[in-house]
Lab assay of single mutants.
Amino acid sequence: MTSCHIAEEHIQKVAIFGGTHGNELTGVFLVKHWLENGAEIQRTGLEVKPFITNPRAVKKCTRYIDCDLNRIFDLENLGKKMSEDLPYEVRRAQEINHLFGPKDSEDSYDIIFDLHNTTSNMGCTLILEDSRNNFLIQMFHYIKTSLAPLPCYVYLIEHPSLKYATTRSIAKYPVGIEVGPQPQGVLRADILDQMRKMIKHALDFIHHFNEGKEFPPCAIEVYKIIEKVDYPRDENGEIAAIIHPNLQDQDWKPLHPGDPMFLTLDGKTIPLGGDCTVYPVFVNEAAYYEKKEAFAKTTKLTLNAKSIRCCLH
């Protein structure tokens, strides 16, 4: 018999989150649709729960009410004593943790798909938090293969000092899905179709896995975050240069030392320094102006996964 890495157990509980950011409308629209008619997301033997994560922000069509829901799922915020004085999103995070967690427990949901849009030209993107997770690498390989020839990129946010504390991190297997470009507060049919297909293929993978299909060893190309880059700023902290036209919409493309990065209003080009080629992502993302992030630098690498098969009882 072929030796293989056996994944822990079959997958039982899956959640699909929309509206973690209330103005990213593809996930909101799909989740609302699936709450009314969820036939397309159901798979035999699998509990799939669509869920609106930040209903107040969705109602106002804004990213958040008090603070970013997708950055506060750490033990400090989840452990705060519940009171009306807490920011709305912290209270909501505790409610979500109660419903789908608790985080880092045996009772937490197996998989959470968190649906997002970006204003950046990132196409279909899967966000991975753990480079050693054979199950998710296999799932992402399946999704990428199923979507081809449509490109699907994998963004690895594993980093020693950049801690995200994402909404989906309460699950055993957290999956971020990011599709763009799409303006905030807008629905685009092409973007919706791409996100819908990503979810379909992900659920198909889980179904095949649960039925005992063995997935042979595989490898995927990923883009691992190195650092986030702020806009150049003046002495008052105001933005002093904008994304250069040569960099705009060039997510995932190589940016070499000396290539144009920013452009000042008086026409001066600010190039990339250093001696390493990087791959920019979230270029000129609207939501990241407040976070002082013009783009993120990534490096390209390959992740390998062992063969996996479900432990059938």
Score class of each variant (00 low, 15 high):
residue 273 G to Q: 13
residue 152 C to Y: 00
residue 241 A to Y: 02
residue 9 E to H: 07
residue 180 G to C: 03
residue 145 T to M: 11
residue 140 F to S: 05
residue 308 I to F: 05
residue 254 P to E: 12
residue 246 N to T: 15
residue 277 T to M: 08
residue 144 K to C: 09
residue 67 C to R: 15
residue 17 F to S: 03
residue 236 N to Y: 13
residue 263 L to S: 07
residue 6 I to S: 11
residue 306 K to S: 15
residue 168 R to D: 11
residue 281 V to S: 13
residue 284 N to Y: 01
residue 57 A to L: 06
residue 304 N to S: 14
residue 105 S to L: 09
residue 76 E to G: 12
residue 163 K to Y: 14
residue 121 N to T: 06
residue 20 T to H: 08
residue 27 G to E: 00
residue 96 I to Q: 07
residue 184 Q to W: 10
residue 234 D to V: 05
residue 296 A to C: 06
residue 247 L to P: 02
residue 149 P to T: 04
residue 40 E to T: 02
residue 280 P to E: 02
residue 283 V to C: 12
residue 234 D to W: 05
residue 146 S to G: 12
residue 14 V to C: 10
residue 191 I to D: 02
residue 143 I to D: 00
residue 141 H to N: 14
residue 235 E to W: 07
residue 269 T to V: 12
residue 195 M to L: 04
residue 116 H to Q: 11
residue 65 I to Y: 07
residue 250 Q to L: 06
residue 184 Q to L: 06
residue 95 E to L: 12
residue 82 M to A: 13
residue 119 T to V: 10
residue 20 T to N: 04
residue 42 Q to L: 09
residue 65 I to V: 07
residue 48 V to L: 05
residue 46 L to P: 02
residue 238 E to P: 02
residue 119 T to L: 01
residue 254 P to N: 03
residue 307 S to C: 15
residue 178 E to L: 12
residue 24 E to Q: 13
residue 173 Y to E: 04
residue 179 V to W: 01
residue 166 T to F: 14
residue 74 D to E: 14
residue 245 P to I: 03
residue 289 Y to M: 11
residue 56 R to C: 14
residue 234 D to C: 09
residue 266 D to K: 08
residue 42 Q to Y: 11
residue 111 I to Y: 02
residue 168 R to N: 13
residue 196 R to F: 01
residue 64 Y to K: 13
residue 58 V to A: 10
residue 27 G to A: 12
residue 29 F to K: 10
residue 177 I to A: 03
residue 293 E to P: 15
residue 292 K to N: 14
residue 36 E to T: 10
residue 260 P to Q: 04
residue 105 S to E: 15
residue 87 P to Y: 06
residue 308 I to S: 03
residue 103 K to P: 10
residue 193 D to I: 14
residue 138 Q to N: 00
residue 308 I to W: 03
residue 47 E to I: 11
residue 77 N to G: 11
residue 77 N to E: 13
residue 198 M to V: 15
residue 46 L to Y: 10
residue 198 M to I: 11
residue 238 E to S: 14
residue 224 K to M: 04
residue 270 I to M: 07
residue 186 V to E: 01
residue 166 T to P: 11
residue 249 D to A: 02
